[in-house]
Simulated assay, not measured.
Amino acid sequence: MSEQRPNPTGVPEAIRFEVSGHRPEDAVRDLARVYGGGVDGAGRWIARPTDGTFDHRYTALGDAEVTIRRAMLHGALHGVVPAGGDHVVLWVGAGTVEVEQRPLPLEVPVLLPADQEFAFRAVDHDLRIVHLDRAFVRRVAALRGDVGEHVLRFDSHRELGPEAAARWRGALTALARALRAGGTESAAWQEAKSAALEVFLDLFPPVLDDLPAVLGQPRNARLRAAVEYVHDHAAEPMTISDLSAASGLSVRSVQESFRRVFDVSPLTYLRHVRLDRVRAELTTADPQAGAVGDVARRWGFAHLGRFSAAYAERFGEYSKETLRRSVH
């Protein structure tokens, strides 16, 4: 969904909508828009019947900070969800769902990737979905502890157990009850939202990226915007022109600023961030899964030979050695 803004009263805008239909082309049109692809993104979605019949229904209720949603589909659907937008927690109640070819478990909360494009496949599904506005998540995280100038990231590969599932189910129940009782302007809804965010941050604790202290200097304010863009979009294709647009600096000034502060080019800085992200994932990955190539590609390394050399140069060991020492 496109980003919603609070209205002039300061109360987050209420969100309520439903889309439904009985034809695959209707599902492609409706769900591509809902998932952020828009009209242009519909070309990357395919829907088809599974047994001769087809229908879909998607509902959303809440406000611009938190919405609870339900997606039901009798049929098969796959497509590509763009990076950006809300943090989204998915609960698969029925059917089969894959994200980047990873089967999702039933009745366990799963965090979808927020900062990278991902492929999504589902068959005959019933999904409970919660959308969490990024700014709202950050405000609640700041109240829990000093997030400072960190860029917040969340591990979408974190696996949760029965206790976590029970806590999230309770949060979903409380949100739904608050909406039924008083709507989005009620005190009960505000309390349920905050409680749900507390559970979210417990289940998916933020991974904090330290930004160099030098970026706090006023003269580096625009460079800071470029660096934050790198950290927020590290898995996406990126050019120096993108950094120029994000920071308001010219292309030449972006290059000069990175050289002045970090003594590397902007694209070298991006490569270092991506390598750090790969290493962070490998330290918690299953050594038996042979995940190095998949993780590297997810973070933008298309040429695995060059990736391996760059990884060894940065960390003094090969990526497979990191994987063998993982916590699993």
Rank of each mutant, 00 (worst) to 15 (best):
E3I: 15
P6D: 15
T9F: 15
V11Q: 15
V11N: 13
E13F: 12
E13W: 07
E13Y: 08
A14P: 06
R16N: 06
R16I: 08
P24N: 13
D26I: 06
A27S: 12
V28A: 13
V28E: 14
L31G: 06
G36L: 13
D40K: 14
A47C: 04
G52K: 12
F54Q: 06
D55V: 13
R57T: 11
Y58E: 15
G62Y: 09
E65L: 11
I68K: 06
L77C: 05
H78C: 09
G85A: 05
G93H: 10
G93F: 04
E100A: 14
P105N: 05
V108N: 03
P109R: 01
P109E: 02
P109I: 00
L111Y: 06
F118L: 13
F118V: 04
F120D: 09
R121V: 06
A122C: 03
D124F: 10
D124S: 07
L127N: 03
L132G: 04
A142L: 02
L143H: 13
R144V: 12
R144C: 08
G145D: 15
R153Q: 07
H157C: 03
R158F: 12
L160M: 14
A165W: 07
G170Y: 04
L175H: 01
A176C: 09
R177G: 11
A178H: 02
G182D: 10
E191V: 12
A195L: 02
A196Q: 02
L203E: 03
F204L: 03
F204G: 01
P205A: 05
D209W: 07
V214R: 09
L215Y: 01
G216I: 06
R222D: 10
V227S: 00
Y229I: 00
M238H: 01
L249D: 00
F258Q: 00
R259Q: 14
R260T: 09
V261K: 01
L267N: 05
L270E: 02
R277G: 02
A280F: 07
A280T: 06
L282C: 12
T283G: 12
T284G: 10
Q288L: 15
Y311I: 03
G316K: 09
Y318H: 12
L323F: 12
R324A: 15
R325V: 11
